[in-house]
Design a protein around this nucleic acid. Structure first.
Lengths: 333, 333
DNA sequence: TTGTAGGCGTTATCAC
DNA sequence: GTGATAACGCCTACAA
């Protein structure tokens, strides 16, 4: 494999000049540039990224830590982040945390390993008690939730407001006993708790009581758990006429369980999801859901991280994306 | 950031000894090891990956190039590959090709850029004419299809056999006019063409004619295109009683279009997919589909690549995974 | 068992 | 406008 020295020799210049040509520096005479380019081409020269990284103290790669890439929401997010990173000249290395607190903390310390220039972390397992772990000296952006007081940048979903709007939509469509399907409620600033809070707010605003009977738990927010939870609930009789699901994935499990029980959507029960993953428009019935503008959030997250990489120092910026409700068949079109 | 030298100084040894401790080399006196570990800990030492890479000529990262990570099948695959790579001590950097021939070729030449130790490439846009491009001097494993004669390792789906089995299943369930929804048929060794061939074989074996009217094209295999194709077809009257979809994603679009047309599945039309993505079990109706054992394929692909990275030289191994048909509601349970 | 020397390929600095 | 020099931090010889 040809090195910069080989090219320099072949072109009759110094390595420095070759470097300057490569990096588009000014002050290279056109004729020289030509000779160098020709030599590079002839030798099939490729820059050695490891050497460049060592010299520059950068790797050109950022890490993206998500619970599992194989879930529609994280897939959607990853796609947007890879695209956004590409626009910033960065590559993306993906790590799966399995939504466990330990793996999320491990991802944070990996980033200290200087594997990546920075890390975008989707926290699910970590809680406020782990804020201290965020105090690392490398660029980190938390994506998804708000961990109050953390010394890092955040790109947050409009969790509460959007959950409230989604639930209000059910109220407006005539629902009076609205169930919610969410993960474990620790009272912390995780997806489930924040969206649950929005759900409660909408109920209160509508003067509806909050019945603990209507809270269905799907601990790790999988289709399977959601379906099981709803089956258990309907086995005791249909005690609700609307369901707010904290994610679209959960909603898919819910729709399936309702179909199993022979309950018609939206006639008997109306369902709302959250995320607007690609599949939600194609489900039968198609799913009414919250669209949080993934592309914008991804772009902001990468932009924040890139800025932090360039400028250094800790950040505390917060960005909460916009959202809109996409009304489809599951709430009556 | 502390370097190996700093640690050496702090522990009163040479850098070499620190290196030996780090890499678990034998011949380090326990007491010395202790002193070194203590110093590393005290200084918060982290190895500089760039320097190690430069020295070793390795990056510890492999590339995974897929059309779009935001599709259930590729998400599933990526999850399995990241997990498998982790077991081999490798990280995974993901690149999205958008299924275009140009981007796939670019991914191949990127790998020559020595960004990664090796590349796993899911070819969709490239054809046999591009076999030459595979003749790179870096480890590459092609995942998904067979490009005959390429000088690289392949991990292939059992495309033809599985497609034939899926179609035969429709025949066995009583279907006589079986449509197929696939991408453009170039007669090359891509997913659509191979699975289409399997479909044809099953028809022939059953003594059924192959009617061009029954070939629905969804050029890039999206839900949208599949739905549109089926809508156009049903608008001219329901001319089929079974559909073989070349992917589950396509099947989701098909199920949606059939629902729009008021056609009942499986009573009027039976549907089979391919991939067994997580969602397929939760659709309404749940989807009968081919399960190709993604985890095994991912493991094999990573193992082949890892072996190639270690041993060097070009490879020509072919591995075709096993498959099984998962029968669900869309063909009558 | 531990230390010394040297170089992996690149680029920043500063001469010329 | 171009080139010599010196790192960047680590690891593989080889020497002690």
């Amino acid at each position: 494999m040809a090195t910069i020295q080989d090219v320099a020799k072949a072109a009759g210049v110094s390595a420095m000049t070759v470097s300057n040509v490569m990096n588009g520096h000014p002050n290279v005479r056109p004729a020289t540039r030509e000779r160098v380019l020709e030599a590079m081409d002839r030798l099939g020269y490729r820059v050695n990224v490891a050497a460049r990284n060592l010299r520059k103290g950068r790797t050109g790669t950022i890490g993206l830590a998500v619970p599992e890439i194989n879930r529609p929401y994280y897939g959607r997010l990853a796609a947007a982040i890879i695209a956004a990173a590409g626009r910033h000249g960065l590559r993306v290395s993906i790590e799966q945390t399995g939504a466990s607190r330990e793996s999320e903390l491990a991802a944070l310390s990996q980033s200290r390993n200087r594997l990546y220039d920075g890390l975008i972390l989707s926290t699910v397992g970590m809680g406020p008690a782990d804020v201290g772990a965020l105090d690392v000296d490398h660029p980190v952006v938390i994506l998804g939730e708000r961990i109050f007081g953390g010394p890092v940048d955040h790109v947050a979903m409009p969790n509460e407001a959007a959950a409230e709007a989604a639930t209000r939509h059910l109220v407006e469509r005539g629902c009076r006993r609205i169930a919610v399907v969410c993960g474990r409620l620790g009272g912390e600033a995780d997806v489930s708790s924040l969206r649950y809070a929005g759900y409660l707010r909408a109920l209160a605003a509508a003067g509806l009581p909050a019945d603990p009977e209507l809270v269905v738990t799907a601990a790790s927010l999988t289709m399977q758990e959601a379906a099981r939870g709803v089956r258990e609930r309907t086995a005791r009789g249909l005690g609700f006429d609307g369901v707010f699901c904290v994610t679209d994935t959960v909603a898919m499990g819910v729709l399936r369980a309702l179909a199993d029980a022979g309950i018609r959507v939206p006639e008997q029960v109306k369902v709302v999801g959250f995320d607007n993953v690609d599949e939600s428009a194609y489900l039968v019935p198609s799913l009414t859901t919250v669209d949080p503008d993934h592309d914008l959030m991804a772009e902001r997250a990468v932009a924040l991280l890139a800025a932090r990489i360039d400028r250094g120092g800790p950040g505390r910026e917060e960005f909460a994306g916009p959202f809109r409700l996409v009304v489809r068949e599951s709430t009556g079109g």
